[in-house]
Structures are given as C-alpha cells and as structure tokens.
Amino acid sequence: MEQFVCYNGEIISEKDFSIAPNNRGFYFGDSLFESMHAHSTEIPLFSLHFDRLIQGMEVLGYEQPATFTSTLIKSGIVKLLNRNKQFKSTRVRLTVFRNPGGLYLPSNDSISYLVQTTNLDFDKLAHRLPSMIVDVFPNQIKCAGEISPFKTGNALLYVMAARYAKLNRLHDCILINQHGRYVELSSSNLFGLKGDTLVTPPLQEGCVAGVMRNYIINRLAPSIGLKTELKPISQKEFLEFDEVFSTNAVSGIRNIVGIGTKRFYSTRYRKMQSALEEMLF
C-alpha cells in the first residue's frame, strides 16, 4: 500500500520525497527528532514531545516559523495517520533540520520538518517483548552538555552501542559517562527500583530528557505509591537494585533481568506497565 509523509505541512507520497544533496541533517547531523506513540489518532504524550523539541530548537538556534505550532503540527500528524490508514499503535517520527547553507557555520537558521509514520508490531504498550539482558558499552562514553538532553541526528554513539549489543548477543547496552556512572541505554532511559523508590540519573549525568522518563517521575510513580529520586548511579549501586527497567515513549516500560552474571527480580514490572497503559490509553 502506498505510504505518505508530511513535509513542511504538505502530505506527499513517500516515493516522491527526497532530500537535497546538501541537507544539513545529512551533512552534519544538524537535526532534532521526536519518536512518539500514536494510538488511533491520539498521541497521549504529544505536548511533552513538542515542548522538548522546542527547547532543543532554542538550544541549537533554530528559528521557529509561525506555522510550527503545537496545534498545527499535531493536526498534520493526525492527517498523515488518516492518509496512511494507521488506526492502531503507530510510531510517529517528527524530524526538524536546519535548511541548507554554509559549512559547519550555517548561513541561516530557518528549518524544515518531516513527519513519518510506521506501524508497531504491538498494540498500546509492549507487554510481550522479552526481558532484557544487558551489559556496559565499553567503547565510548557519553558526557553531559548543552545538547545531551535532546535527540539529535548525530546518533552514532547509540548506533554503535546497539550494534555492540547485537554482536554480543545482548538486548541492549548501558552507556556510561566520564565518571564511569550509568547514564542510559541505546534507546531508552534507565530506572532502578529499591524498596518503594524509583531511582534514575539526573540530566547532569548526560542522559536524554526522556518524555516517558518525565511522565513516570511526575505522573505514574506518584499514582502508584512510589517515590522517585534523581541521583547518579554507580556500578555498585546498580547491582543493589531490586528491579531495573528501561523506559521510552514508544514501548513504555521494559524490564531488565540481568547484567553480566547478576540477575534481578521482575515482580512489579507488569503492574507498572499495566498502570501506565491504563493512564495513557
């Protein structure tokens, strides 16, 4: 079936879309993106995604056109979902990139944007994904900085971590910072549960300011009687957690059962995932 994309507000056939040879997202990774979960034509966390995107655009110096508003972008996504006849769970990717011009120094800060949608192989949240065995990605660190909270087109660190996981028969890898502390996984944030407290690294450690991370801290955890604590996580502290989870906006919460020879319990994961699904959908 023919698929469509939304480019600068216009719905066009995917086969008719192409980028310019000097596209700055392609040349320099000069882009930002958001991966969202749509169910039917609802995007439960859209406002959090859009707010993070605008913050990232401000940091990168992108101009925000008058037509790039929360209302208009959401309307365009809904039109695209309808055009592609995607009425179950769908991954929506919104990419913003600086328009061509200049080398490292851009000649202008105007932007273009692209929306793409793909069907997910699960409905609502991912209850049936296998429990994860992970390990530390040893080849590169992630440092905190002005752009570390955002999802940029310069994602080679995550590509290499995901590739390392596959080559080593792992489900994912944990990224560490310059202090040797745990930051996040290749495509998700990291949480540990100790008693009734959920622990996750603060942004100062270098992790992405995850939309699902935000929602769990501010909405889910209080609703199910859990406290949250933002604190650095050392290797020793990680191994002392009762349970460990990865979180992202598309699949929700996924449990981690092992790192190296260490195994974790997995007694509260499904209840948390079910509570999250009920709140979102």
Rank of each mutant, 00 (worst) to 15 (best):
D109Y: 11
G206H: 06
R83Q: 13
F281R: 10
F4H: 12
N154F: 01
S223A: 12
N23C: 10
Y265Q: 14
G101C: 03
D172N: 14
D121I: 08
A165S: 07
G76D: 15
F28C: 01
G76C: 05
Y7C: 08
P138G: 08
G29K: 02
D196G: 00
V136W: 05
R98E: 08
S107G: 12
L60H: 01
C173D: 09
D135I: 04
G56Y: 01
R52M: 03
C6H: 04
A161G: 15
E205V: 13
F238P: 02
I111V: 08
S187W: 10
K262E: 10
I141Y: 06
N255I: 02
N84C: 08
E34W: 03
C6T: 01
N139Y: 10
D121S: 15
F238R: 03
T152F: 00
L280F: 05
L167V: 01
S148H: 03
M1D: 11
I19L: 14
T200A: 08
D121H: 14
M212Y: 06
E14M: 06
H171S: 15
L220G: 12
V183Q: 02
L48H: 06
F281L: 15
C173G: 13
T41L: 04
A162M: 12
H127Y: 13
N23G: 06
L94C: 07
R263L: 12
S107M: 04
E2W: 00
F264M: 07
E277Q: 14
A249Y: 03
F122R: 08
